[in-house]
Simulated assay, not measured.
Amino acid sequence: MAIHQETDFTVEIRSADILEASTVRRIAEICDRVEDARTGDVLLVQVRGDDGGDTGHPRSRDLDIHLVNKWERALRRLERLPVATVAVATGECAGPAAEVLLTTDYRVAAPDLVLRLPSSGGAPWPGMALFRLATQIGVHRARRSALFGAATTAEKALALGLVDEITDDPEEAVGVAVKNFQGARAGDISVRRRLLMDAMSSTFEDALGSHLAACDRALRPAGQL
């Protein structure tokens, strides 16, 4: 299901996409566009399942640890963009699509969503998707998916907080989200996102300086940043 919205930036990734240089480049190029632009508040990320597609990271001649490192770095850039990232997920979301979904800010799911972590040789892929899953829902709740590759339905994903809403009309939901997130870039969404991420591993004392710096930035008049 393609979503046709007037968004500032758009990228699509499918479950059947394999981890190769072109997949890394697709994410890197949209990050370049967003970072180089001075305006625009929302990146629409369409993650789509493909029936019968490969749901993992196949062992191809091009796949080595250097390519995996580039992929993880591209996902980290996506996770730190200065705009709001809104995902719409449909079908069996697995492989690279599942990894991308876990980096986004707001997630709209179709009722047919089934979320599966990437796999390799039938076992869950030990990439940073495991880290994101654990930090987002907790180690206990992530255990079945991380250790045994258990699938997560749309309803379960909503209950866990892995998606924000389920709807029969993803396009309408995305339209509402796009309107709600206008001003995200000027409002320093990337700063607040980083503070949330750091809260998982920082003490209050260590985090205080970063939060005070963010508050100081917010208190300054426009144009004096």
Rank of each mutant, 00 (worst) to 15 (best):
T85A: 14
A87Y: 06
V88Y: 08
V88M: 01
C93A: 11
C93W: 06
G95M: 03
A98H: 05
L101T: 01
L101C: 01
T104I: 07
T104E: 03
D105F: 07
A109P: 12
A110C: 15
P111G: 03
D112N: 15
V114Q: 09
L115R: 05
L115P: 06
L117I: 13
P118N: 01
P118E: 05
S119N: 13
S120A: 13
G121R: 04
A123P: 00
A123T: 03
P124T: 00
P126K: 00
G127H: 04
G127T: 02
A129P: 00
A129H: 13
A129E: 09
F131M: 06
F131E: 12
R132P: 04
L133V: 09
L133M: 15
A134H: 06
A134L: 04
T135P: 00
Q136A: 11
I137H: 08
G138V: 10
V139L: 14
V139S: 05
V139I: 15
H140Q: 09
A142I: 07
A142Q: 04
R144I: 02
S145H: 00
A146C: 08
L147E: 15
L147H: 06
L147P: 00
G149E: 12
G149L: 09
A150L: 04
T152N: 03
T153G: 12
A154R: 05
A154N: 07
K156S: 07
K156W: 01
A157C: 08
A157L: 09
A157Y: 08
A159N: 12
G161D: 02
G161K: 02
G161L: 01
L162V: 04
L162P: 12
V163Q: 02
V163C: 07
T167L: 07
D168S: 09
D169S: 08
P170S: 03
E171W: 01
E172N: 12
A173Q: 14
A173H: 14
V174K: 13
G175D: 10
G175C: 07
V178T: 09
A184T: 05
R185V: 05
A186N: 01
G187A: 13
G187L: 04
D188R: 14
R193V: 11
R194D: 13
R194E: 15
L195M: 04
L196T: 05
M197E: 13
A199V: 02
A199K: 09
A199F: 12
M200S: 10
S202H: 15
T203G: 15
F204P: 01
E205K: 14
A207M: 12
L208W: 08
G209Y: 10
H211L: 14
H211C: 15
H211Q: 11
